[in-house]
Computed example of a mutant assay.
Amino acid sequence: MADAFYLPDPADPDRFVSTELTRGPWSPDAQHAGPPSALLGHVIERCEPRPGFQVGRVAVEILGPVPLAPLTARAEVVRSGRSVELIQATLSSERGPVMQATAWRLKLAEPALDLPVEFLPTGAMTLPAETAAERFPSDQAIGFHTGIEYRFTTGSFATPGPAMCWIRLKHPIVAGTTPSPLERTLAAADSGNGVSAVLDWSKYLFINTDLTVTLHRHPIGEWVCLDAVTHPQPHGIGLAESALFDETGPLGRSTQTLLIAPRS
């Protein structure tokens, strides 16, 4: 089995070969949106990097199924500035664009701002070492679910409803690199609708059309926790939202718009 979600192409720095670890739960031929979102984060961070700046928000649009095939990932700065800049990234297969993302990169305060302590984000979670690993229910022998580790502190895949779940990458997003905090967060955040599912997987599809992650800081360490809840509606549109944590406290929020439909 591959030891990374994507393999870089030595002949083309923008081209990445998808491995079986990217496979999602809906089709054996399509990727989970977590790995390609993280791949977009990978190229965004490498796009004209600026010391003292950090990505504060990434909005990913899923234009269609992402095939298990070679992908081209490119990013460019489309709005530059002294304190904030906007980066746009596109992920394409041989059929054309399959995902797009925009990211705001912001200048970090130097020196750090003297802010009222009582208004700074705080919070404690049950740590991943104190919980047991759980396997994602999938018919696929190899996929995203085998490339990451899930540890629930509340809820489970077998229990419908809100859940808190720690997620850790077992492998790098791109072979030969160490996953950045942003890559880890994007890969984990796309599982919000899965860990907090409220509908029977065998009877319904609940596929996200997008992923928006807003971070007031980047995670420390390998684990990202999702305090996730899914809000379905009878008309077939839903929302999954997650509060994001690491082992030291809150990070930010993520949201996913959901298409809900009966399985045919």
Rank of each mutant, 00 (worst) to 15 (best):
C165K: 04
K170I: 11
G221Y: 03
Y6M: 00
R95P: 14
P70L: 01
M99E: 02
P111H: 04
R46K: 06
F206V: 12
H42M: 03
L7C: 00
M1D: 09
N208L: 03
A4C: 11
D190M: 02
G194M: 02
Q140C: 11
A188I: 09
T177M: 02
S92G: 09
P262T: 05
G238Y: 04
D227Q: 04
T230E: 09
A158M: 08
P49C: 05
A30F: 14
A109S: 14
D14W: 05
D114W: 13
L259P: 07
R184A: 07
F136M: 15
T177R: 00
L120M: 09
F5K: 00
A4P: 15
A109T: 14
T257Y: 04
R168K: 08
A261Q: 10
V77Y: 05
D210T: 06
E247S: 04
G143Q: 09
L258T: 06
K107F: 08
K170E: 13
P160R: 06
R74D: 04
K170V: 13
I87R: 01
K203Q: 15
P179N: 04
A101E: 02
A228K: 07
G41F: 09
S138P: 11
L186T: 11
R50Y: 07
T131N: 11
G24Y: 00
P51M: 02
Q88R: 12
V224A: 14
A33L: 15
L113K: 12
S83I: 11
I142Y: 06
G238V: 04
N208T: 12
G56Y: 08
D200H: 07
L39G: 06
S27T: 12
D29C: 13
D200R: 05
G161F: 00
P250Y: 05
L39R: 02
S138E: 09
T126R: 11
P70T: 06
I167S: 02
G236Y: 05
M125R: 12
R253D: 13
V117M: 07
P67N: 01
H42T: 09
E241V: 12
I260T: 01
P70E: 02
I237R: 10
G56C: 09
E61C: 14
K170L: 14
P97D: 00
T146S: 01
H218I: 08
T153I: 08
P262C: 02
